[in-house]
Design a protein around this nucleic acid. Sequence first.
DNA 1: CAATTGTTTATCCAACCGGGAAATAACAGT
DNA 2: ACTGTTATTTCCCGGTTGGATAAACAATTG
Lengths: 215, 215
Amino acid sequence: MAGARPARKQQQRSIRTRQKLLDAALEAFSENGFKGTSTRDIAERAGVHHPLITYHFKNKEELWRAAADKVFSEFSAALLEARRDAAKQTPRARMASMIRTYVRYAARKPALHKLMLQESSRASSRLDWLIEMHLRPVFEVVVQEIRPLQEKGIAPDGDPALLFNLIRVASGGTLALALEIKDTSGIDFERSENVEALADMIVEVFLPGAESGTA
Amino acid sequence: MAGARPARKQQQRSIRTRQKLLDAALEAFSENGFKGTSTRDIAERAGVHHPLITYHFKNKEELWRAAADKVFSEFSAALLEARRDAAKQTPRARMASMIRTYVRYAARKPALHKLMLQESSRASSRLDWLIEMHLRPVFEVVVQEIRPLQEKGIAPDGDPALLFNLIRVASGGTLALALEIKDTSGIDFERSENVEALADMIVEVFLPGAESGTA
DNA sequence: CAATTGTTTATCCAACCGGGAAATAACAGT
DNA sequence: ACTGTTATTTCCCGGTTGGATAAACAATTG
C-alpha cells in the first residue's frame, strides 16, 4: 500500500477523468437506476466521450460497482470513525453520534441511499454484491451497539435488527425523498438546520431513555 | 359499487387486458423506474402485444399515470377508511389504526412505495403530478391528526410535518427495502407476523404516550 | 530525438427503444 | 347476413442503447 506518490502528469489527468466518471455515474445511477441509465448519459454528465468508460472501467456493470464501492466505502468509514471517536462515551451518546453522522452523510450524499433503494427494488447480482460487501458488515457492527441500549431501557424493546432498520430507513429514506418532502411539507433538507432537526428527532424518538434530553 | 352491470363480452376482454397492463406496469415501473422500463417489457409481463399499450393508454407516460393513479387512489381510500372507522376512538388509537393500515398496505403492495421512491429520485412532471394529486392531500389530512397528539404528550415534540414524514418513511421505506433486509437481517416481511411486529414498533416508538402499551 | 506507453477520439454494429400504420378479428345493432 | 365499431395482431420506422475497434494523440523515457 502506501506509496505511488509521484504520479506522472499524464496519469494525473487520467485520474481526474476517472473521478469525474465515478461522480457522474453515481448521480445517474441513483436517479435513473441501472437499467435506466445509459453510459452515454454518464459520459455527458462527466464531460468526456463515452468510450472512455470502456477504457477505464471495462463496461457499465464495472463502472456501477466502482461508483458504488467508492461511496459506500467512504460512508462506512465515516460511520465507523464516529463510532471510534465516541468509544469512551456512554452507549447512548455513542449511538446518538453515529445517528447524527449517518443523517448528515445521507444529507450530503443522498445518492447513496437512492442507489441503495434503486437496487433493492428487485433482485440482482448487484444487490447481492452490495449486501455482502457493504450492507451486512455495517449491519453487524451497528446491531451490536443496539442490544445494550435496549437492556438499559434507553432504546425501545423488540428485535434489534428491526430497530436498526427503522433507524436507518428513517434517516436515509427521508433524505432520499427530499425532493418530494420539500414540496409536500415545505421542509428543505439543503438547509442544515433542517438536517439537524431530523437527526434530533430520530435520536429523541429512538433513544428516549435518560441523558441529553432536548425537549 | 353500483353501476355498469351488463358489460358486453368484447368489453370484458378489453377491460381484462387493461387491468393486466396496469398491474404489469406498476410492477415494472416500481422495479426499474420510468426510464428503465420499456413498454415491451410491460406488455410481456402482461402477456399481451405491445401496441395494445398505445391503443389503451396512448403512450408510456399515460400508462404510468393510470397505474400510479390506481394504486395511490386505493391506498388513500384504505387510509381514510381506517381513519373514519376509528373516528370515535381516542386520537392515539385512531393514529395507531392508521399506522397499522399504512404498514399493512405497504407490505401488501410494496410497489406503491417503490414507485414513490423511484419518482422522488429526480425532479419530473410525474413527481409534480404525484405530489399534487395524491401525496399532498394525504399529507394535509394526516398532519392534522398529529398536532393534537403532540399537545397531549402522546407523540414527540417537533415539527409535525417532519414527524409525519418520519412515520411514513419508517413504514414504507422499510418495506421497500424488504429484499435487502431479508438478506442482511433475516427478517422476512412476507410473513405477516413480521409486518405486525414492524407496525407495533412504529406505534410504540412514535406514540409512546399513555394507553395501549405493548412492552 | 525516437521508441514506448498511456490516453483520447472517431466510428461501427447488433440489439433494443417508443411509437405508429395497416391488416385482421370479435363483436353489436339492424 | 350485412355494417359499423371496437379490440387485437402483424409489420415497420427512425433513433438510441451497450459495447467494441482502431486510429490519432500526448507524455514519458532512454
